[in-house]
Design a protein around this nucleic acid. Structure first.
Lengths: 235, 235
DNA sequence: TAAATGCTTCGGCTATGATCGAACTATGCG
DNA sequence: CGCATAGTTCGATCATAGCCGAAGCATTTA
């Protein structure tokens, strides 16, 4: 009856605790099976199956059949961005009821958002690149300048295959913990992959936290200096 | 049990149709009374009252008591941004079930988003300003360049009072219909107010659509030329 | 082919919560 | 003061949907 899209249906889909837990688990960017997601949500397999078919109907997740497994993943990056926005609201208002676990500090410093780097260090990376005019804002998409292309190539990334893909090269994504944007898109994904390949960082098993090594942290600060001169290692 | 904020609670709050309609109505940026919101949602006053107290608890809306009325508004711009993100998901996937009313075309062209200009023309405005280097991306906030400050002053906006406010001057906000960002923040709000004051545009009663006059449309296209040379009046 | 694993469907139970009528409080108006 | 309007609280009703046990289908492995 109202103008505009049917926001209630999508929100209700995310609003169930079991489904919200599944979606949060999928924010890691990894594709998970129905059984794994049932475990994440704390429900039986039958219940999880019902939830997953609803999420599929709602277009929030996609599925890939492989052998006798069905791998679920978020449907696209917009879903991840919306979930981050909701996390921002929840963190801002309901911060009291969120118990801050031992992994919370690590999560705020660096974590995986769908498939790219988020948290303080994600924000610092984009901020540093914007400051040196490697990246410019052009609507929702961010544009890579010639200087920026040279920089990321030197960083060890092959731009050619990224440019041919239909997904946007650079996108901005809002950080729930920092309330600023960080770099998403296929380049954001490639940057994180490169950092993993060079051993700067590894993924924490069982959470979205990213664990930087001491040398990785130092190298990161050198590669992406903060305009204020502060360093991630010494906050 | 999961790491991260309690996303399910917030989403469930938005997920009820009655509450979603209320929030959508508040996206106009106007503060509405409980009775008006009950009408928007199509429920009785008692039911609306219950919903509104839940939205207050959840931090999604704020209230201002004035005489025997209680005026409700969205708590802050982040809420509006999150709702727009949800609209983007709903429009993208469930577009089939959204009946496109007669006001739909006008809504896509220009509408109010919280308190600033959104839709095709909102995107064109920001795009045009970025293209002429009046505005630059700096994280989530957009930065006004000296040239930009000169431009908006010539446009008839006093920057001094905006700069003193603690709210950010420029912010980006994602458009559900265009899937690109437009200009929010106190400057975005001032720009729309200025366009209303000069008679370029007036608000449609009963919806979020913005109705540009013929001369207003022409003046807008002159003030914010699209890099491609296309004009809003002749799409 | 049989057994095992992964997942879906069906049916019934249950609880949450949305809804409204009625009664109650508060503010403004004459 | 009394009346009207605005809004809240309470209580009862009722429907939705989340949940799981059991059974069924599909695929892989032995």
């Amino acid at each position: 009856m109202r103008e505009g899209p049917d926001i209630a249906h999508v929100a209700a889909l995310i609003g169930d605790p079991a489904r919200a837990n599944m979606l949060t688990a999928l924010m890691s960017g990894k594709a998970l099976t129905a059984t794994e997601l049932a475990g994440e949500a704390g429900v039986t397999l039958q219940t999880a199956s019902g939830h997953l078919s609803k999420l599929l109907d709602g277009g929030l997740v996609q599925v890939r059949k492989q052998g006798r497994h069905r791998y679920f993943a978020l449907a696209h990056a917009d879903v991840a961005a919306t979930l981050e926005a909701l996390m921002g609201l929840a963190a801002g208002q309901g911060a009291l009821r969120t118990r801050t676990g031992p992994k919370d500090a690590a999560m705020r410093q660096a974590r995986v958002c769908y498939n790219h780097l988020a948290g303080q260090m994600g924000v610092q990376m984009l901020s540093s690149m914007v400051h040196r005019d490697f990246v410019r804002e052009e609507g929702e998409a961010l544009g890579l300048t010639p200087d920026g292309a040279q920089f990321v190539t030197a960083f060890g990334i092959a731009l050619a295959p990224l440019n041919t893909a239909r997904a946007p090269l650079c996108r901005s994504c809002l950080d729930w913990s920092e309330r600023r944007t960080h770099l998403a898109g296929s380049l954001g994904r490639a940057m994180l992959a490169r950092m993993e390949a060079t051993g700067w960082v590894r993924r924490d098993k069982g959470s979205r936290a990213l664990l930087f090594s001491a040398t990785g942290m130092a190298a990161f600060d050198t590669a992406f200096p903060n305009e204020k001169g502060t360093r991630c290692g010494v906050p």
